[in-house]
Lab assay of single mutants.
Amino acid sequence: QAKEDFKKMMEEAKFNPRATFSEFAAKHAKDSRFKAIEKMKDREALFNEF
């Protein structure tokens, strides 16, 4: 479920497709859906799949 929420957050964010993961992470670090994925490498993997 956390992965689905994370993907939904990325869809809602409508970020620049050229944005890096660190830019995305800095902007969304306080979002509970971002925090729900415990490991940063897992967050980055989901970001890269998107």
Rank of each mutant, 00 (worst) to 15 (best):
I37F: 05
K14Y: 09
F24K: 02
H28N: 08
N16I: 11
N16Y: 15
K39D: 09
A25E: 07
T20D: 12
S22W: 10
E44C: 03
A13C: 12
A26R: 13
D5V: 01
F15S: 13
D31T: 00
D42W: 00
E44M: 04
A36N: 07
K41C: 09
A25K: 06
F47G: 04
F15P: 11
T20M: 07
K7D: 03
M10F: 09
A19M: 15
A2C: 03
E4Y: 03
F34T: 01
F50S: 11
F47V: 04
D31K: 00
M10K: 01
K8I: 06
A13Q: 08
F50W: 05
K39T: 10
K3Y: 12
E4D: 05
D31F: 00
A45D: 15
K41A: 10
K39M: 12
M10C: 14
F6P: 02
K35C: 14
K14D: 15
K8Y: 04
K7V: 09
R18F: 12
E44N: 03
E44V: 10
E12S: 06
A45V: 11
D42C: 04
D5F: 01
F34L: 02
K30P: 06
K30Y: 06
N48F: 04
A29G: 13
P17V: 07
F6Y: 10
F50I: 10
N16T: 12
H28L: 01
F21W: 10
D5C: 02
M10E: 02
I37G: 04
M9A: 01
D5R: 05
S22F: 06
T20K: 09
K39Y: 06
S22R: 11
E4V: 07
K7C: 08
F15K: 09
H28G: 02
K27C: 08
D42F: 02
E4T: 08
K35W: 14
F34A: 02
M40L: 07
E11L: 13
F24Y: 01
A45R: 13
K35N: 11
D5N: 11
M40T: 10
F15N: 07
F21T: 04
E23M: 04
A19V: 14
F15D: 10
Q1Y: 08
E49I: 03
A25Y: 05
K14A: 14
K14I: 07
A2F: 07
H28S: 03
F21H: 03
A29Y: 12
I37V: 14
S22K: 12
T20C: 09
R43P: 04
K39V: 08
D31N: 00
K27V: 11
D5H: 07
E49H: 02
K3W: 06
F6S: 03
F6V: 00
A19W: 14
K3S: 08
F24M: 05
R43F: 03
K39H: 11
K7F: 15
K27G: 09
S22E: 15
A2E: 14
A36F: 00
M9P: 01
F21R: 02
